[in-house]
Write a protein that binds this DNA or RNA. Structure first.
Lengths: 388, 388
DNA sequence: TCTAGTGTTCGGTAGCTTAACAAACTCAAC
DNA sequence: GTTGAGTTTGTTAAGCTACCGAACACTAGA
């Protein structure tokens, strides 16, 4: 009966229709007069656009909104069948998959530890993630329209020369392989995006950076990384290596030579815990096993722990100054296993204000979910860009 | 007779006309069929556009181009009366003013030392520059259409708190004052742009970065600064402080505290010459007075000079690595009194490749003229953006 | 004179607009 | 209640701008 039951993936719509579609996806339901006012269109144009978008099964009318006086207006929103996207996070120890509709509503989510029994981490991660995706797609079913985009968040590195299997991280070509192996139709675009960049996007859309179109997300954990958002868009650099602050020269002084990735070696949580073990000479309790334990001890007032945390905060602040001195981001959002700890904030701020100009520093609002959420939101953005 | 002898500053043209105008300005003369092909327009559209643009005195036809066969096509280019712009460079010791037409051809140029006799540098610079502008505008006369934009290149600093007169640089509000005092009609837009940013633009349009849309311009001289171009556009940051690499934490190691602007104190040419004086213990000639003399000595093979230059190159390379680790620019163009010296290049490259991934490093192609040229090209860009 | 280009005229279309009108809803007077 | 006044929503009609394709006229060299 219907000439087009499922919307085509490649659309040929006038600007007005694109604008309406995009607006409904990004800002939720609205009435015709509201859309007309916001987009600068006339009512007759809306009269042409809305039926067309409904015919394509991209928007649907749901309920009505009546004001204080006058005729009540119909409410329009994205149709359930307009489509959905996948966000995939694949880390060394954990895999997550999330499905959202194009208006940002979550449809389904799954998460699993990567079993370390298999031969190597990359292979295990790929297998786990693939299975997870399959289950999730089965759960989503057909009720949400076509799958329009998939973004895989992974700890990518720029100079991706093939190397032997390691246990501390994922291999870049392993990730590419995963992207190719995902159980999705061949015509669905799949990309891999750096996990820190994804987290930055999430904080921009849903978290601590909603009011800033230009900011950086500084992740401090086992490794350190930086996601840069300028005018609402991710910066990638010439080799996809922007934000590789592990490479920042450190130590660097008139008498000391920087080492390759020396900063990561010093600021990573492994080094932090090593310093902790060295410094832990007093008898008030056992040596903290992981950063969480260290921060807990510091929160309890343990003097050695406090000193260690303070020093770490100062160093993170100096790293932030290094970034600020290049970018002047206006806002620095801290994230990652270590960086997201509120206890660091005063020390970081002290370091930045003493070395540079005032810049807002916050802790990310989304915690460890930032990465998947960023991936899925990037997928939404890409799907809408292609659609409109 | 003519209804519009001078083109209006605010135009209401269809997209096709804007495209033609922009193309002629940025890529020089062309025929109708060429323009139609490049811009994706039809011949009837060109038939409407060209007379309209000629009526507005924005383009003119000059000569004809005949191919191997068929009728010869008329050549069109920007009309002489389409307008012109000014680039102004105001430094602590030197002022330059340049006038270009919208297609980038130089109309006139002047340059003068800032006399230091007056009360303070800022005042002297403002006075000198104003006079220079007046003379230049008189020289240009009326034959080049309206003055459409003015860009002043100056060593701006972000946190522009009013301070007492100093002799080492210009005061930010002094520069603002200059922008207001320039002898140009009130309706001509005047902006102040950082001098390093201007130099970056010049290298992008005319110099060493013509093939890269994303790169950085690293200026090393008395001070150090960075201009960032991403996708062909300058980055300014939240406070106009992006590129303030003088603030990069230095010295920074497990045992050393960074000082505010410590890197500039170490990498600036004053510090370089101080180290030179300290190290210059041998008897083979007098102590070099300025960086040029030092580099000359190094070029002659003087061992102490070579060592100093090598060390400086290494440190500049480390600074470049700091920038690369944030931005991954793909190309670093070196400029400034010290940085533009070819002798530094091998040492800088050695440092960057040992600490990070491969990135092209070059010396700027425009020397000390980069700044004015950048200012005038920025003015052209702004004028065209407003016009189209 | 043939051929292959350049430029113009004519008619048509997409994508908007404003103006006028019809439909729907609230409120308040009777 | 009923009824009309006032207000807002949605549709219809007519017109405008900025483009396009097709057909035709106009050079210029072979």
């Amino acid at each position: 009966m219907n000439p087009e039951p499922t919307p085509p993936s490649r659309l040929d719509l006038p600007d007005s229709s694109r604008g309406v579609l995009r607006r409904l996806a990004t800002h939720g339901p609205a009435t015709r007069p509201q859309l007309a006012k916001i987009l600068g269109l006339s009512r007759p144009t809306m009269s042409a656009v809305m039926p067309e978008l409904m015919r394509l099964n991209l928007v649907g009318s749901s309920g009505s909104s009546r004001g204080a006086t006058g005729r009540s207006a119909a409410l329009y929103s994205l149709a359930p069948g307009a489509g959905h996207v996948l966000g995939v996070e694949v880390g060394a120890t954990r895999a997550r998959v999330v499905a959202h509709s194009l208006d940002g509503e979550q449809i389904a989510a799954r998460e699993e530890r990567v079993s370390a029994r298999r031969r190597n981490v990359t292979e295990a991660a790929v297998a786990t993630t693939t299975e997870l995706c399959e289950k999730l797609l089965a759960e989503v079913g057909d009720g949400h329209g076509p799958l329009r985009d998939v973004v895989v968040a992974a700890p990518t590195k720029p100079s991706s020369k093939p190397s032997t299997a390691n246990t501390s991280g994922l291999q870049p070509d392993g990730v590419e392989q995963l992207a190719a192996a995902l159980p999705v139709p061949a015509d669905v675009p799949v990309i891999v995006e750096n996990n820190v960049n994804c987290a930055a996007i999430a904080e921009h859309r849903l978290g601590a950076a909603q009011n800033q179109d230009t900011f950086v997300y500084l992740q401090v954990g086992v490794k350190i990384g930086l996601g840069i958002v300028v005018d609402g868009k991710l910066m990638h650099g010439a080799h996809g290596a922007s934000g590789e602050v592990a490479m920042m020269p450190f130590p660097w002084s008139p008498d000391e030579q920087p080492a390759r990735a020396g900063l990561e070696e010093y600021l990573g949580s492994e080094a932090l815990m090593a310093r902790c073990a060295d410094a832990w000479t007093d008898s008030s309790g056992p040596v903290p096993k992981d950063p969480e334990a260290l921060f807990e001890a510091a929160a309890r007032g343990h003097s050695t722990a406090r000193r260690l945390v303070d020093q770490h905060a100062t160093d993170i602040g100096r790293l932030a100054v290094g970034v600020m001195s290049v970018l002047d981001p206006g806002l620095v959002v801290l994230g990652g296993g270590v960086g997201q700890n509120q206890l660091l904030l005063p020390g970081v701020r002290r370091a930045t204000t003493s070395l540079a100009w005032d810049t807002e520093i916050t802790v990310g609002a989304l915690g460890e979910h930032a990465t998947v959420l960023g991936a899925v939101h990037l997928a939404i953005t890409r799907a809408l860009d292609r659609l409109t």
